[in-house]
Design a binder for these strands. Sequence first.
DNA 1: CTGAAAGCGCTTACAG
DNA 2: CTGAAAGCGCTTACAG
Lengths: 359, 359
Amino acid sequence: MKRTVRLSDVAAAAGVSLGTASNTFNRPGLVRPEVRALVEATARRLGYSGPDPIGRLLMGAKAHAIGVLPPGDMPVAHAVGSPFFREFMLGVAEVCDENDASLLVISGAENRKTWAITNALVDGFILGHLEEAALVAARQRKTPFVVMDVEAGPEVNSVRVDGRGGARRAAEHLLDLGHRRFAIFSVLRKPAGAIWNPPTTSERRLTGGFPLDHEKLLGYADALALAGISVNDAPVVEAHPLSPWVDDGARMLLDRSPETTAILAMSDRHAVAVLAEAKRRSINIPKELSVIGFDDAENAIFADPPLTTIAQPTTEKGRIATRILFEAGLPRQVVLPAKLVLRASTAPPRSPNIGSHGV
Amino acid sequence: MKRTVRLSDVAAAAGVSLGTASNTFNRPGLVRPEVRALVEATARRLGYSGPDPIGRLLMGAKAHAIGVLPPGDMPVAHAVGSPFFREFMLGVAEVCDENDASLLVISGAENRKTWAITNALVDGFILGHLEEAALVAARQRKTPFVVMDVEAGPEVNSVRVDGRGGARRAAEHLLDLGHRRFAIFSVLRKPAGAIWNPPTTSERRLTGGFPLDHEKLLGYADALALAGISVNDAPVVEAHPLSPWVDDGARMLLDRSPETTAILAMSDRHAVAVLAEAKRRSINIPKELSVIGFDDAENAIFADPPLTTIAQPTTEKGRIATRILFEAGLPRQVVLPAKLVLRASTAPPRSPNIGSHGV
DNA sequence: CTGAAAGCGCTTACAG
DNA sequence: CTGAAAGCGCTTACAG
């Protein structure tokens, strides 16, 4: 097996210059038909399959690919398997198709992330991430990028949902139904045991969430405050969205705050875990306990009971982010609205506590 | 904005040779600590973010990515959206994760396919395709590849399910239940109107299917022949798996072969379309009509009624194909078994026709 | 441990 | 229309 044949080999064998050989493949109009035929025949004879994409790349060609780095240290398999992330990728994929680009799903695994960001062979990438390290690596590269669900300043493209507004709507809905005793089910970024944050009088912060989750907490606080309730009176459980962690979190929630009548979950995944645990305990949802989710992912409507939730335009987020990459204009920060979707997992509390405050 | 800074700029500014600068980044152990520190400081000062991956590529570095080209001219968005293909990608993704590689989803759109095959920046790729053109393009490239669901000779890596055996099992199951009047619902590769192939005495071939579908037809024929029935006596409808084509096909099937008691569908998608159309017509499945699918894709178990089908190890196919790429040994041809999964869409025919042959 | 040089495979002005 | 040359950004022997 000899060395792979290059354009220069073809040019030499055909007796033309490298430039002419290159033109035969890239601007055939510039080459005299006889010469072109000669070069092509020689290429065929030598088994040359056309210019190597890598040589081309070096001269500034496009990679014709967009990279997507999933949030939360997801490896590629999780990214492909996650219903929520898939909806997002669907939007990315649509715009890739419009622009004749492929879609590179990059591993978010901790040890690979930074390497991938600096080395992925793409024309632009989308970061489902917020970490400083990732952001720094991305800025180093000349390749355009956009970060999802984080505001990263006026220099950085970002697309995010209005988490605060959406969360406010969720809490308002429950307040309107008459609920006064809430618990919050939040997101832990790392796969680790669920965390219990009891009610407190001092200001409380989430331990391990995404920035978007902190926004949601603010949104809950906004709505509760209007009803004279402090968000600090509600216990907060934080759990990683994958089994078994999220299930542990649901158990913890139900175990430790039996007086709660309504649960504010920061993702549908978390809400569905509560639904499942409630069913195990024969707690009727929504009669005995109301649960509201966030995202309106594919599975929300198929939940039992169908999940009332805050819908965010997940696919549209993917489309917008990808368009920003292809349009390559000035940095943009896009905020998308979230809206309440009424289904069957919320109802008035069994014994209305209207007028009574606190937990 | 000045030209992007290169390694040679850093070397010059630091007063060292290009080689030493390169070593600082790639084999730091070879560089004296003071010099290394100097180069690193200079790099930082100049805003140099480390060696450009493209220059590296040219020197033989890996792309750290595996490409997947979906079957049937699917654009990227369809590939991401298809439950069946997703299961396959899950297997690919798992092995990519094990090997620190990303997953490139390439558009199978007709006009892009060949270009993508010759230009995708990957270390290996998987072709859900059989076309000569694609195969030729793939062979030209030095990059390893494997084709799915086609036997392409001893020189080409291939992974496929035993379509013939699986189809045989499907038909046997229905024969065992007492069915004698069959219709076949097959796959059309291009999105176009459904095709009706009436029973015939001469040998009949599928018009527009994949090679695997031809194998399935042979499998049906094997089993039917053993029961004294010619596959040519069964009408064949061919339809593209997407709506509305597949729905048209289901309608056509039910309209034109009312005497059929059992339908052999070559994919779950096709089987589910029959289920839906039957429900619309208030035809009870399985009492009045039996339907068996193929694949056991995610949705088969959730069908109404749950679909009896032939399961193929879709995710495992993805794993195996990807491992072949990373192992880079001699060409391999792998055939995987398919097995019957009994659920609720098949039953004995209403008025058994045991002993009566033909349609 | 460090430097000078060749080379990876190609494209693009620039002359002619 | 064609050729000679420079350059894309880097790595890798090879001397020293």
